[in-house]
Design a protein around this nucleic acid. Structure first.
Lengths: 171, 171
DNA sequence: TTATTGTTGCAAAAGTTTTGCATTAAGAAA
DNA sequence: TTTCTTAATGCAAAACTTTTGCAACAATAA
């Protein structure tokens, strides 16, 4: 990322925070910068792990409280990625362009996709419902090209099968 | 709902379940019928409460396990409604037409909205990514017409403020 | 530099979702 | 219909994630 833009962004965060009576603590700045430079969507635990590489004393609670603040400020969005990766929430720094998350239900890969049709939808909603949109999330589930040939549905709840979801979370 | 369609749907569920090796238990049928006739999105607790009016002995676990199965079968979708109502998940029977959820960030109202532009997006994703879409979820946050004049952002984390989210869940 | 009060960390609690296991019951086969 | 196989249920307990209370700390403005 170009330095100029980075400076501008941080300046904006400081200003934004001050405007709304929030303080810009080192932890808050750290958490935001992690999301800003993240290449994938991260959940609270992942954010914590990465934050501890810089500030080993930082606590989970601080992550949660700051994600809440950053969401309020509108600089971070919360996703659930269709619950493909478990029931946790995922976060990303808000981007300039709205985009869709396209998730493969089989391999779990998540791609991003932007299109003018999304603007079309927002215009319609503004015009037809009198609704003022502040953000938009599009999540799409299906099968990616590579997974097309695999089995389309998992089998019934057998003992072995019931263990999958929780254990997926653990590692 | 017309009787014919109701019969057809239940027939489909039975067939779908059998095809995939799932059994059609009374509890499963009950849970699906609750979602099918629900006018709003329901979370697990609400589904449980309503199910107990018919089958008082039904357990929470059965709700969770069946929601998982119904999701696998593709007849139920899981939403988080932008976490406006807390962090739980919400469920709805899958509808014939894809639709958007338009949620007011201030009053919490959730409206539904359909548009051909949604089909446009799915066509693009199919063509440009080679992705086979099985469903699509659009969630939009903003301010509804009625809420436009209220304050756009809540103030900092004061003691009083921190209590809001959890206590909202409790009642 | 000082006063104010938002913020952090720690420990504990709350709430939701999952697991283990014995028992029950759906659905195919006899 | 009856029998047989095994998916599904219910109960109790556990596992996780997220929130709360509170004393100590630190970011801002005066």
């Amino acid at each position: 990322m170009p330095l100029i833009q980075e400076i501008r962004r941080h300046h904006n965060l400081a200003e934004l925070a001050r405007e709304h009576g929030f303080r810009l603590t080192t932890q808050r700045r750290l958490i935001f910068s992690i999301l800003e430079s993240a290449s994938t969507h991260m959940n609270a635990k992942e954010i914590l792990a990465q934050a501890r590489r810089v500030d080993p004393g930082i606590d989970q609670v601080t992550i949660y409280r700051n994600l809440a603040v950053l969401k309020k400020l509108g600089v971070v969005d919360e996703l659930d990625l269709l619950h493909l990766r478990g029931d946790q929430h995922y976060y990303e720094a808000r981007q300039d362009r709205p985009h869709s998350h396209v998730a493969c239900l089989q391999c779990g890969k998540v791609m991003e996709f932007s299109s003018p049709a999304m603007d079309k939808i927002s215009t319609e909603i503004r015009d037809e419902l009198g609704f003022s949109i502040s953000f938009m999330r599009v999540e799409i589930g299906g099968a990616c090209a590579e997974c097309r040939r695999k089995t389309p549905l998992t089998s019934p709840q057998t003992k072995a099968n019931q263990n999958v979801s929780r254990s997926k979370k653990l590692n």
